Computed example of a mutant assay.
Amino acid sequence: MRRPRRLLAIASSGGHWTQLQRLRPAFSGFDVAFVSMYDSYAETVAPARYYTVPDASRLDLAKFVPVFAKALKIIMKERPRVIVTTGSMPMLAFILLGRLTGAKTLWVDSIANSERMSSSGRMARKLAHRTLSQWPQVAAAEGVECWGAVI
């Protein structure tokens, strides 16, 4: 019997995490591990494997070094075939490393970005296999797909 393919589901805290949790039914059939920022989120996905990464923003790029190091460690341990994220900026490290290790990558831009894609989403558009907006008008303007809204 074949082992289910591994999927890494990642998001920062707050609304990003909530949106990722609403995608969980789509992960059926995968061996899923989750990544976010707070230890307390582990109980919401138990018994799945759960990892934390530090936060980082585009305003302080030095904070990406520990995020990148942790992302590399997680990806080498999990060996995901698929990486799905609802953002934000720190999750770009997983998208980049996922591409380099052969994982298929999907960035779902936050529903909060109803006027234009987030700055992270615009970067992800260049890195991820697929980048989605949850708003049809934003998707059309940004040249990405819209598969509907998560929330």
Rank of each mutant, 00 (worst) to 15 (best):
L20E: 05
Q21W: 01
R22N: 05
R22W: 00
R22E: 02
R22V: 00
L23C: 06
R24C: 00
R24L: 03
P25Y: 03
A26K: 14
A26I: 05
A26M: 14
A26Y: 11
F27A: 06
S28Q: 13
G29S: 05
G29T: 04
F30N: 12
F30H: 12
A33M: 04
A33T: 13
F34K: 10
V35R: 03
V35F: 09
V35C: 11
S36E: 14
Y38S: 01
D39G: 08
S40N: 02
S40F: 08
S40R: 10
S40W: 04
S40G: 01
Y41V: 01
E43F: 06
E43R: 14
T44S: 15
V45K: 01
A46E: 13
P47H: 13
P47F: 13
A48W: 08
A48H: 15
Y50S: 07
Y51I: 05
Y51F: 15
P54G: 15
P54F: 05
P54H: 09
D55N: 13
A56F: 14
S57E: 08
R58S: 06
L59E: 15
L59Q: 15
L59Y: 15
D60T: 08
L61Y: 13
A62Y: 06
A62E: 12
K63R: 05
K63I: 00
V65E: 12
P66M: 11
P66T: 13
V67T: 04
V67F: 03
A69T: 12
K70I: 09
L72Y: 02
L72F: 02
L72C: 04
K73Q: 08
K73I: 00
I74M: 05
I75Q: 08
K77T: 09
K77E: 13
K77P: 00
E78G: 10
R79W: 00
P80Q: 08
P80G: 07
R81C: 07
V82R: 11
V82A: 07
I83E: 08
V84Y: 06
V84G: 03
V84D: 07
T85W: 06
T85C: 08
T86D: 06
T86H: 02
T86Q: 05
G87E: 06
S88K: 01
P90I: 06
M91Y: 01
M91R: 00
L92W: 00
A93C: 15
A93H: 12
F94I: 07
F94D: 02
I95R: 01
L96S: 03
L96C: 10
L97N: 04
L97I: 06
G98C: 06
L100G: 12
L100Y: 09
T101N: 02
T101M: 09
G102N: 10
L106I: 15
